[in-house]
């Protein structure tokens, strides 16, 4: 009969020790909103679950000189209630708050959404678009990893045995910088992105875009940073030509599969649509700041 152990360490070293010392599969649990479902469905059968929520500082949001620190296990509900973060990164907040239901929001975390490594994760494109950095701790110490380098394939991350994410750092937003996230789902909520798109833009005083990041989700094995999409936006005030170029760039960046959630053709076309619509919201927000 398979056995499952559960531990809730109260310090980073203890957590690392447990994870690194596990003989079989060990899973890090933040909110558990993906992990528990996978356990029940039999998709994963770990030997050990390490619940990180008792580690001091891993739940909560701090505003610092250089920006924001979001604890890895901070729930979506707390993120949605943080006025400073909502003002600075409305795209990240709206993306995070789209995950699951109101009940799920009470538990679901950024680290969990990222490390579940689904191409369709909602918060991930938004965090990448705003150049979020994950602080990874493990047996070999601490390292800072741009969030786009965490997921390597569906269900796989670049984290080594014994490593887990402690927190996320977001830079202090510049003047006229803002972000947005949109996803396409066949319903209005309680669903998984068929296409997700995060866009961050910075404008000059005249409303011309001077910096941009465009990130797509659910259209390739991992989230895709659309460099050509950013180029299409930089130097523009989001005119028709820029939107058309962005649409084309987004479509070109897709590498989706046909599956029950959408065809290749549909995903590619909708990626262009979502990129345009998300960029328009990000521009409007940045202009208003």
């Amino acid at each position: 009969m398979p056995r499952l152990s559960y531990a809730a360490p109260t310090s980073v070293p203890d957590a690392i020790k447990l994870l690194a010392g596990a003989a079989g599969l060990a899973k890090v649990m933040s909110g558990g909103t993906d992990l528990l479902v996978q356990l029940r469905s039999g998709r994963t059968s770990p030997e050990l679950i390490v619940d990180t929520k008792k580690i001091p500082g891993i739940v909560g949001i701090r505003e610092t000189e250089s920006g924001f620190v979001i604890g890895a296990a901070t729930s979506g509900a707390e993120i949605g209630e943080h006025a400073g973060l909502c003002a600075a990164y409305p795209g990240i907040v709206e993306a995070t708050n789209l995950i699951g239901s109101t009940q799920v929001q009470g538990r679901a975390s950024l680290a969990g959404n990222l490390c579940n490594a689904s191409p369709a994760a909602d918060s991930v494109p938004a965090v990448i678009a705003s150049r979020g950095v994950a602080i990874v701790v493990g047996p070999n110490g601490q390292r800072s990893v741009p969030v786009e380098q965490i997921v390597t394939a569906p269900g796989r991350t670049s984290l080594a045995k014994g490593e887990f994410i402690l927190e996320f750092h977001l830079p202090k937003p510049k003047a006229h910088q803002s972000d947005a996230y949109l996803r396409f789902i066949p319903r209005t909520e309680m669903d998984i992105a068929v296409v997700g798109c995060g866009v961050s833009v910075t404008l000059d005083d005249n409303g011309v875009c001077i910096d941009a990041r465009v990130v797509l989700g659910a259209v390739a094995p991992t989230q895709v940073v659309v460099e050509a999409g950013a180029k299409a936006l930089i130097g523009s005030k989001l005119d028709e030509a820029a939107l058309a170029a962005l649409d084309a760039a987004a479509r070109a960046a897709c590498n989706p599969i046909n599956d029950k959630r959408g065809t290749i053709d549909f995903r590619v076309k909708v990626a262009g649509v979502m990129a345009r619509r998300t960029a328009a919201i990000a521009f409007e927000r940045a202009g208003a700041r």
């Binding site: 066949p186 319903r187 209005t188 909520e189 309680m190 669903d191 998984i192 029950k260 959630r261």
Partner: peptide
């Protein structure tokens, strides 16, 4: 949105409420 989806082996591909989409209240 509702439909039974089968793979090429005749196995149902969406046997759960995530991918068998009944309307939710906000729809």
């Amino acid at each position: 949105n509702e439909e039974y989806i089968y793979d090429k082996n005749g196995r149902m591909d969406n046997a759960g409420f995530l991918d068998y989409r009944v309307p939710v209240a906000s729809d």
